[in-house]
């Protein structure tokens, strides 16, 4: 594996996560429990898809990859590298909020690290995106804290959503030993294990204020496979819907 192949593998995973999470966020448009939340998930959808696009553009312009729209919409399911967490249907609001909390803190940690990346296009993008993601974690923290104090049912639902989401969220940090060794040696990024430790610390600080118990890592089975192209049954139907208009006429100019 070459340096550029390893970078491409990492960027594809990051971009696919953002794209699929963005699509899931957009499914709340028009359905949010209150107007502000409808707007919030729609805005976060827009941000995520913009972030995916920025990464697909680096793949295209700096690493010889396919044109971003075609890459985003025309691949087969096996060629996506997103984690299982983002593939899951939105479910109830508790699930969507806890997923958003765990996912966005992972992104925040990752982008903060990538500011120091020796791969310049990524370092420049990181400087821009980390500020935007702060608004996502601010939103998630506020709701996690409030809903955990909103009575017995609310608290129980948040804890139960956390139990469901946690093993899925560990899948964000699925190791890819060959690429990672190369990328860590070249100081392109810090490696999944390091990012995961910081993510655990950071989320723990908020969850403990909210009175929620983070399951211990050893007690669950992480949802791995996404980074190797093995997906849940929910990804293909999402891809069918997401790319439907694009596939009608891939050559159309908008």
């Amino acid at each position: 594996m070459t340096r550029n192949e390893a970078i491409s593998q990492m960027l594809t995973a990051m971009a696919d996560d953002a794209l699929i999470q963005g699509h899931r966020n957009s499914e709340w448009t028009g359905l949010g429990p209150i107007m502000e939340e409808d707007i919030a998930f729609s805005s976060m959808a827009q941000d995520k898809i913009g972030h995916a696009w920025a990464l697909y553009r680096i793949l295209h312009e700096n690493l010889g990859g396919t044109e971003p729209d075609r890459f985003a919409f025309l691949r087969g399911e096996k060629d996506y590298r997103c984690c299982h967490l983002v593939e899951m249907p939105n479910g109830e609001y508790d699930f969507s909020l806890v997923r958003h909390f765990l996912f966005d803190h992972a992104e925040a940690v990752r982008w903060e690290h990538l500011q120091q990346s020796t791969f310049e296009p990524l370092a420049l993008t990181a400087r821009k995106l980390k500020g935007e993601i702060k608004y996502h974690t601010l939103h998630a923290n506020a709701w996690i804290t409030q809903l955990c104090r909103a009575g017995e049912e609310s608290y129980a639902r948040m804890q139960s959503a956390l139990n469901v989401c946690f093993p899925l969220a560990l899948g964000i940090f699925e190791p890819s030993p060959e690429a990672e060794t190369l990328l860590v040696n070249e100081k392109i990024y810090a490696g999944e294990a390091t990012l995961k430790e910081q993510w655990l610390d950071r989320t723990y600080n908020i969850l403990s204020v909210a009175g929620l118990n983070l399951p211990s890592e050893g007690s669950v089975t992480p949802a791995y496979g996404g980074r190797k192209g093995y997906h849940t049954e929910y990804l293909q139907p999402l891809l069918d819907e997401m790319g439907y208009v694009f596939r009608l006429d891939p050559e159309a100019v908008w």
């Binding site: 502000e36 939340e37 707007i39 919030a40 941000d47 500020g131 608004y135």
Partner: peptide, 30 residues
């Protein structure tokens, strides 16, 4: 702060306890 997201990506929504207006805010960004 009512919501860190508003009608466009660069805006947040706030509420004024003094005059009772809901207002938008151009968010600071580093």
């Amino acid at each position: 702060l009512r919501s860190p997201f508003g009608s466009t990506l660069c805006r947040a929504i706030h509420y004024c306890r003094e005059c009772g207006h809901v207002f938008e805010h151009f968010k600071p960004l580093e």
